[in-house]
Every structure is written in C-alpha cells, then in structure tokens.
Simulated assay, not measured.
Amino acid sequence: MRLGLHPNHGLGWLPRALMGGSLLLAVACGGELPPEEVADLSTLSSELDSCSPDVTPPVIFCQPEAGTRECLGYGYIIQESDLSSLPRDNCGIGYVNRDPVNTPGAGTYRTGVSAQDMAGNSAGCSTSWSIIDTQPPSITLRGPAQLLLPYGSPYVEQGATGNDSCDIYGANYPIRISGSVDPHMPGTYPITYTLSDRAGHVTRRTRLVTVLPQDSCTEQLAGPVLALQGHSQETLECGRNAWNDPGALAADACGAVTVQSYNSGHDEYGPGPNTSVEGNYTVQYLAWNGQGTTSALRTVTVRDTVPPTLRLQGEMYMRHTCGSAWVEPGYRADDSCYGNVSYSVQVSGNVNGWAAGRYTLTYEARDPGGRRSNLQKRIVDVVNCPW
C-alpha cells in the first residue's frame, strides 16, 4: 500500500493530516492497519524506541542502484516498489512520499522515498538510475527522394525534418545539408542531410537530383550513380535496436534506376543483420543500366554495450526468527542481448540464522562480455534468539 503517493508531488498538509487521523481513528476503534503496514512491535523493540515520547524515525531502506532504462525524452521516473522496503515504525506511519525526477535526457539521476511517522519523525533514502539513449534520430525528407530536373531549371531545396525519441530538441536541431546542383550540367547530384543527437548518434539521408540533358534522353553514356541512404558503417545495440534497412538510391542521365539489395532482410538473398547476436554483417546494393553496373557495401556491427539489470525476488528487508537456516528468496538478472544471465550473479555476505544481528547481502551480475549490473542489497535482521 502506498500512502500519499503522487507522480510529481508529495501530499499537502491536509491530505496527510486526514490520512494520519484516519489511521489513528481506525486503531482507536479496534480496526486494523492494512496488512503490509502492520509491524510486529515485539520484534521492533530492539531497533525502535517507545512511543512515549516517540523520537525514533521510521525504518526504510532503498536499493543503491536501479539499473538501466531507455530514454524517452522528458518524463518522470519514480522510486519503483521493488527498489525500497516498506517503511516500518512502531508508533505508526503518517505518510510515505516517493520523490520522482524529471529526465531531460540520458544521464544518471536519483529518485527517493521519504516517510514520516505520527510524531513527525522522518527518514528517507534514494536510488541511482542510469538513463541511456541507444536510439538514433530520424530524418524525413520533404518532397521525393529522387528528382528529375529539366536542363536549366533552378533547383529548389525542399529541406527535411528531424526527430529524436530521447532528445526533445532533436526536431529543432539544424539538419546539415551538403551538396549542390548545377542545372546547366546534365548529371546526377547527391544532396545529403545529416542530423546528430546529444548522445552522438548520427543519421544521414540522401536525395538524388538528376539534371536532364538539353535534348531528349535516348541513350546512356555511363553506368548509374548509386548513393547509400544512411552510412556505409552502421552500428546497432544488441537486443535494443531494430534493423531497418535504410536502402540506397541510384540514377543515371535519364532518371531513377532500380536498386537490388542482398542480405538486407528484405530480399531472398539473406536474412539480414541479426540484432540479437553480436557480430559484423554485410549488406550489398547493386544498380545497373546498359552501360555498366555500380555496387556499394554496408557493414552493420551489432554490439552490446549495455550492462544487465538485476532485480531481487522477495523483500529487500527481511526479518528472520532465530533458530533455523535463512533461505535465499532468489534474484534475476536480464541482459538485452544475452537474455537471462542469473547464473552469473555473485552474492557477497551471509546470514547466520542462529545468531541475532543485522546482515547485509550484496548482489551483482555480469553478462558474457564482462559488463557489470547494478548493485542490489538485501537486509536481513535475525531476531528473537532463545539463548
């Protein structure tokens, strides 16, 4: 149960007072607190003081790290329920507030949880988040990607628009346009559009403009010009980026020429790059006319740079009655490229179920490339030893 939870703000004084009053009234009238908020006062006596007066703050723990999350532009992230323990207090919790953070882009951010008991004592903790940007920006050409320009007609640039899923300013970044057209010189001219985001991803698109000869185009004097859309070297994040063939354009003195692709994933000559397996993949493009054939290669590198994400199963704060072995509830580590890597989890520390005390267990996983996951911790209090 979350008390006073709101995505952007904590409770105001009136809702908190009403909530605290409702809990006190429920107890006074013989009711019970919600199960997840009920505390065993006898087992808490070792760590919390008396309620007369209540000078002890609530007990609450947070995981130190939350792992990675893909950037989706401006938006709020909050302390997720499995990243913090339920606040405990022997005199009753007044309210709980999960503090969000606004994420303007990739980077490291902290969210927090704070709790206050009925006497006004407060406690809090925070968790570090890693927000990553693995998605390149996109470019949309205004007008057709291939143009036929009559001899002597001026070329009018139609421009392009850009967008980025993480960087909200991406659409307003200047798109660099390179290339020029001589309307009095028949031939094919590539106009290139380039857009970069703040994470360093670069997207490129090309427009081919064919200036027709003065007379009618009846025969070719040379093979076609072929231009790749995108880059000749493309990099994809394993398990996160989809492969969408940018394609290629070709033209000769008479206009557009058909391009045949091989191993692009959209033809019968190969499945294309496997974005779930690290490696280098080659895609080939061919265009031909009566005077010759032109080809180009694109190398697609699928790599894994993102560490796995580790989550604990069971509670991160547990109480164990002394006199029996403590049983590990478990954990799970997932990697966007390699899937379930729970086998790699290393646990530091141990719990002696026959000796009273507080025990801290630290968990960490690694993927096959050696990238280390976020740290997770579990707190175990062994209590009520009969000896």
Results as ranks from 00 to 15, higher is better:
Met1Gln: 07
Leu5Val: 13
Asn8Cys: 08
Trp13Phe: 14
Met19Phe: 02
Val27Lys: 15
Val38Lys: 15
Ala39Arg: 11
Leu48Asn: 11
Asp49Val: 02
Ser52His: 11
Pro53Ser: 08
Asp54Pro: 01
Val55Ala: 06
Pro58Arg: 07
Pro64Gln: 09
Gly67Ile: 03
Arg69Thr: 05
Arg69Gly: 00
Leu72Glu: 08
Ile78Gly: 13
Asp89Cys: 01
Asn90Tyr: 09
Gly94Ala: 12
Arg98Lys: 12
Ala106Cys: 05
Thr111Gln: 01
Ala115Ser: 15
Gly120Ser: 09
Asn121Ser: 12
Thr127Phe: 00
Ser130Gln: 12
Ser130Glu: 04
Gln135Cys: 04
Pro136Glu: 11
Pro137Arg: 10
Pro137Ile: 01
Ser138Ile: 03
Ile139Gly: 01
Leu141Ile: 01
Leu141Met: 07
Leu148Glu: 12
Gly152Glu: 04
Tyr155Asn: 11
Thr161Asp: 07
Ser165His: 05
Asp167Ser: 08
Ile175Glu: 02
Ile177Ala: 00
Gly179His: 04
Ser180Leu: 00
Val181Ser: 02
Gly187His: 08
Thr194Ala: 09
Arg205Asp: 09
Leu208Tyr: 09
Thr210Ser: 13
Thr210Leu: 09
Val211Leu: 04
Cys217Gly: 09
Leu228Met: 11
Gln229Asn: 14
Gln229Tyr: 08
Gly230Asp: 05
Ser232Glu: 15
Gln233Arg: 09
Glu234Cys: 01
Leu236Trp: 03
Asn241Ala: 13
Asn241Lys: 12
Cys254Arg: 08
Gln260Thr: 08
Ser264Phe: 08
Asp267Val: 13
Tyr269Phe: 13
Tyr269Pro: 03
Asn274Thr: 02
Ser276His: 11
Thr282Lys: 14
Tyr285Ala: 10
Ala287Met: 05
Trp288Ile: 01
Thr293Ile: 09
Thr301Asp: 04
Pro308Gly: 12
Arg311Met: 00
Glu315Tyr: 14
Met316Ile: 15
Met316Glu: 14
Tyr317Lys: 03
His320Tyr: 08
Thr321Phe: 08
Ser324Pro: 02
Val327Gly: 00
Val327Thr: 12
Pro329Gly: 10
Gly330Asp: 07
Tyr331Pro: 00
Ala333Gln: 05
Tyr338Leu: 00
Gly339Lys: 07
Trp354Asn: 14
Ala355Asp: 07
Ala365Leu: 03
Gly370Asp: 15
Gln376Ala: 14
Gln376His: 04
Arg378Ile: 02
Val380Lys: 09
Pro386Leu: 12
